[in-house]
Design a protein around this nucleic acid. Sequence first.
DNA 1: AGCTTAAATAACCAAATGACAATACGGTTA
DNA 2: TAACCGTATTGTCATTTGGTTATTTAAGCT
Lengths: 133, 133
Amino acid sequence: MNHKREQTVDTTIDVLRAHNTSKDTAAPLSDEMLELIAQRFRLLADPMRLRILHQLQGGEKSVTELVQATEASQPNVSKHLSTLRTHGLVKRRQQGNLAYFSIGAPFVFDLCNTVCDSMRTEWERKQNLLDNL
Amino acid sequence: MNHKREQTVDTTIDVLRAHNTSKDTAAPLSDEMLELIAQRFRLLADPMRLRILHQLQGGEKSVTELVQATEASQPNVSKHLSTLRTHGLVKRRQQGNLAYFSIGAPFVFDLCNTVCDSMRTEWERKQNLLDNL
DNA sequence: AGCTTAAATAACCAAATGACAATACGGTTA
DNA sequence: TAACCGTATTGTCATTTGGTTATTTAAGCT
């Protein structure tokens, strides 16, 4: 597989970091890279999965606990957990009959915070617009 | 509309911020809120849209420029721009015959950086695992 | 006015996604 | 072993999504 390590990776990140380069055309991101980034976002682009992750923020939980907390069907929760796991966002630990899941990639919360902050500031802006009428 | 401002918003963000609260069950996020957050992520969950946004990082661009840079069809680019615009991620400015688009929500790059960083550290970790064999 | 170019929209198709119901799996206990 | 519980998987469905082609709108230019 070997998705073009090291060199390509660093280049990409540097490009993404350089917000204010005044180049006319940004260095293109490879298709692979774009797909990987999109994939990560896609994992978070579902309310149910967000709900599960949000619950796991309180610590490790079994599937049944998650089912109760999210008020979703068990197969549904299991499936989401499975996809989250194959992408490394959650970890699984089996103890006897139970399967305990926990957060596997803390960066998730950074993302959520960024999104929430952006929404809040945007709403505050809109609020100000209304106030100044 | 009025998606439950202020109080609810702050509560939500506080909850998301409190990574290590040892509550057993996290305060549930409202369905509306989850859907909004998911929606934002969904916008970034597509390689084509990421490519467009990435191009706009180099500054304002016309549709045709974007078409050339992304090597996609014009209607395709237009449609993506339209959805990005209705969600506030890009701004549109019309000058004569041309329509110029630019970034409307800088938080996008924070998100991309977070994702890229996470990928890099993960790959470095895997790399170390291989090195230590 | 007519022609040309840029951009948006419409109509449509194929693929991906998320939900549910039913079933299978795996470990624990009787 | 059988019965039971928690979890995973499969098959199927409706919906959504991203892409295409064809068409329309709109602004400049002779």
